[in-house]
């Protein structure tokens, strides 16, 4: 009798413990994942009122990153008319940055927008990667290590800006290809990326991300009516190192304005916190339930066996 009670007590205690652990775990998970951006991270502000579509940034990137030759020279401006499945040019395994042209009604000249990895403060590619192939460096770059990558391509789905691309051309050496902020060759030494240095119009301004935000807000303040009063990337996806200033609403120049204003990670934290619980606590818990539910049957079975033997 005493033995039975203590077992019941043990199970009760176990259940209470599980519930407590679950509740505590959830609150801890929420608190533990709040991450402020690196204070000295660098950034670039892309001013669409300045870009003239000269493609100097594309040419500089191609040389700096030793990417394969492009089918057209970099001074061929017919590429702006290219459409693949109705879409404008995009970054791929042979180009980490592209400039596209946008005819916006009400503008007396076309607008051009450079695109590349935006180097999020809290990158979705990084958090989605289960082998930790991505790193956000204190300088602000989101870099990638092909040595540990298993080629699952989850990062390509996770990225809200569709930036990481896959090297499909190589069957045996899968590799994700994306802009790395010229981390190894320049940023590490405090130098601006090659595209920024090449830009004749200073449409790309490089500096500490915090200072770039000030520069952006100053330009908006000092030139009333010239810019949309928002810096794209200040809050998008939880903030990005590369940000945009535009004279027209951002969706008119192909930027996704539905990108959430908080890190993509926030949407999956709750779910991810449950995963270890499901994998560790649930098996024990339900095995316990099972044993408890079938205990009488087993006792009966044993008694029957005893009777038969007797």
């Amino acid at each position: 009798m005493n033995k039975q009670l203590s077992r019941r007590g043990f199970i009760k205690g176990g259940l209470a413990g599980t519930v407590a652990a679950t509740v505590l775990k959830d609150t801890n998970a929420d608190a533990g994942h709040h991450f402020e951006a690196y204070p000295n991270a660098m950034g670039v502000i892309v001013d669409l009122t300045r870009c003239v579509g000269c493609r100097s940034c594309e040419a500089a990137c191609n040389k700096e990153q030793e990417l394969p030759a492009q089918p057209e020279p970099f001074d061929d401006f017919n590429v702006f008319d290219q459409r693949l499945h109705g879409q404008r040019r995009r970054t791929d395994e042979t180009r980490y940055t592209v400039v596209n042209r946008y005819e916006v009604p009400g503008q007396d000249h076309p607008l051009f927008r450079k695109q590349q990895c935006n180097h999020c403060n809290e990158p979705a590619c990084l958090t989605s990667c289960f082998v930790n192939a991505y790193t956000k460096t204190p300088e602000g770059a989101v870099i990638y290590n092909s040595k540990v990558c298993v080629g699952c391509r989850t990062c390509m789905i996770a990225c809200p800006f569709y930036v990481p691309t896959f090297k499909y051309s190589s069957a045996f050496k899968p590799k994700i290809m994306k802009c790395v902020f010229c981390y190894d060759t320049r940023l590490k030494e405090g130098k601006p990326p090659a595209c920024v240095e090449a830009c004749p119009q200073e449409a790309l301004t490089f500096g500490k991300r915090d200072d770039m935000l000030d520069v952006g807000h100053q330009r908006i303040r000092m030139n009333p009516g010239k810019y949309v009063e928002h810096i794209y990337g200040e809050h998008e996806a939880g903030g990005t190192s590369w940000m945009y200033l535009s004279p027209v609403p951002f969706d008119k120049v192909g930027l996704d304005t539905d990108v959430p204003q908080e890190p993509i990670l926030n949407y999956v934290t709750g779910f991810l916190a449950i995963v270890p619980m499901v994998l560790t606590i649930w098996p024990a818990l339900f095995t316990g339930f099972h044993l408890l539910a079938t205990r009488k049957d087993r006792i009966e079975e044993l008694e029957n066996d005893d009777k038969q033997e007797a």
């Binding site: 040419a59 492009q70 089918p71 057209e72 020279p73 001074d75 008319d81 290219q82 459409r83």
Partner: peptide
Amino acid sequence: FNTGKHAPEGYTPGAAHQDSG
């Protein structure tokens, strides 16, 4: 800029606007 003497092999100016998609 991969142009002039250094233009890509087999490049025809003006062909780039075709919709390859």
